[in-house]
């Protein structure tokens, strides 16, 4: 019994010690994409970055090589094989810099893929929501989202 008390006491001290540590975490865990989603295997590059004050969100728009060169051309034309992915987070205050906000909890990843069939170009849209990026079956407003994602201008990168 005495041993148990000692162990509990020691454990509570350890926990208390951890709680006192208000140091900034090295990694932004809450913004992380789940490893199972394998986002990095899509082979996409950064196309643009933006925030929304009204919704308190931050986003990075990615595209594959084709998507980026189409975006730079700026003629609103798209081609089969083009892929864009929009990653959106809630914002949080930057714990390391008073005067900045950084991505907070992960909200969604939206994928737009353009392919071709006998009638011409077709666009596929998929949305994955929440921390675990679960497939969102809701199709409401898809067209608007596709347009929003395809209409984005590229961030200028010399």
């Amino acid at each position: 019994m005495k041993n148990v008390v000692w162990i509990l006491l020691a454990a509570s001290f350890t926990i208390a010690a951890c709680n006192h540590d208000d140091k900034v975490s090295l990694i932004n865990d809450q913004a992380a994409l789940p490893a199972t989603f394998k986002f990095d295997t899509l082979g996409l590059k950064v196309m643009a970055s933006f925030a929304n004050k009204k919704y308190g969100t931050m986003s990075v728009l990615y595209a594959n090589g084709e998507g980026i060169s189409n975006a730079i051309k700026g003629d609103k034309k798209h081609s089969a094989g083009e892929v864009r992915a929009l990653v959106t987070w809630g914002q949080q205050d930057d714990p390391s810099w008073f005067g900045a906000r950084i991505p907070g909890s992960l909200k969604s990843v939206e994928l737009v893929k353009i392919s071709t069939n006998t009638t011409g170009l077709i666009t596929a849209y998929a949305k994955y929501s929440g921390k675990n990026l679960l497939a969102a079956p809701d199709t409401l407003g898809q067209e608007a989202r596709i347009k929003y994602i395809l209409d984005q201008q590229p961030s200028i990168m010399p």
Binding site: A31, V46, W97, I102, S155, P158
Partner: peptide, 25 residues
Amino acid sequence: MPDYKNWQAISTTNRFDNGTLRVIF
């Protein structure tokens, strides 16, 4: 180094202190 465009974004910041948006690769 122009190749930064092919690196991965590791974060982004909304620097309201100086009116800029940033991406860190």
